[in-house]
Amino acid sequence: MGAYVIRRTLAAILLLFVVSAITFAIFFLVPRLAGESSSQLAAQYVGRDPSPEALAAVKKNLGFDQPLYTQYWQFIHGIFAGRTFHYGPDASHCAVPCFGYSFKTHLPVWPQITQRLPVTLSLAFGAAVIWVFTGVTIGVISALKRGSIFDRLSMGIALAGVSLPIFFTALVSLSLFSYKWAIFPNLHYVPLTQDPVAWAKNLVLPWVTLAFLYSALYARLTRAGMLETMAEDYIRTARAKGLNERVVVVRHGLRAALTPIVTIFGLDLGLLLGGAVLTETAFSLPGVGQYAVQAINENDLPKIMAVTTLAAFFIVIANLLVDILYVVLDPRVRYS
């Protein structure tokens, strides 16, 4: 078990480096291969029609004149040890973890992300609570009452849930609940620490919208998993012992059916933490996802790099946790 965790952790760290290298290559190497010069890159930092001197200075300060591997090394070094940029006589220190400065605003990227992270976390975790609860409950009931009206109805809705794109459901719910009936008017993000009630009230609609998609997915997964486990021999044994049907379903059926779902949940959550792009955009939530869209629209490379690295980080960590959790949950894996 110990060796397994260490092996997985080392693999995860290695994977993070590989991802960062590939991302770096995509954003810095590919443009250069495509013919963009380091001057054009530097030009993004200065205003229109820069003087050649200013361009050269920016190029030097940001290290664009260095070979790519040096630049990559500086990028990694910045994340772990900080980095100092020299603007002529001035030197500005970019604190750990340093993802550089925005091309457009010249502000350090990382503080902007940490500012936005709580929004994304609020959205993702709130929605996760809702979808796990509703998805699993509906899935279990559907499986137990297979073929009933409830089953058919909920699976019909679930099919709609997984098929409808989130920007559609988001816009529909916005126009109905926020504008037409004004149940949640004037949506804007309020930090949890500032006013928990307002925080929740403003997030209900995004939560429900996002959870709708995932609930549908989880209801279908849970239903399939339950149908499979409830047909297992050990369920028959549990009944033969004279256990209550509720105990049979929850302790014996659900326990086994949930194991694979827990792992999928970990991955889904990890994916969302890197930015729920569509939901944040649709509801104008100032989260990491929205930041990513903005960065891409503005072609602001340091921001894109930072967001991508962060998303990769969450996914790799989620993967790692899921792998470890699986061993904890399934004794057959643990003892072999």
Partner: peptide, 10 residues
Amino acid sequence: QDPLTSLHPF
């Protein structure tokens, strides 16, 4: 019949 599948693996 099959004691492996008849016992809960977890």
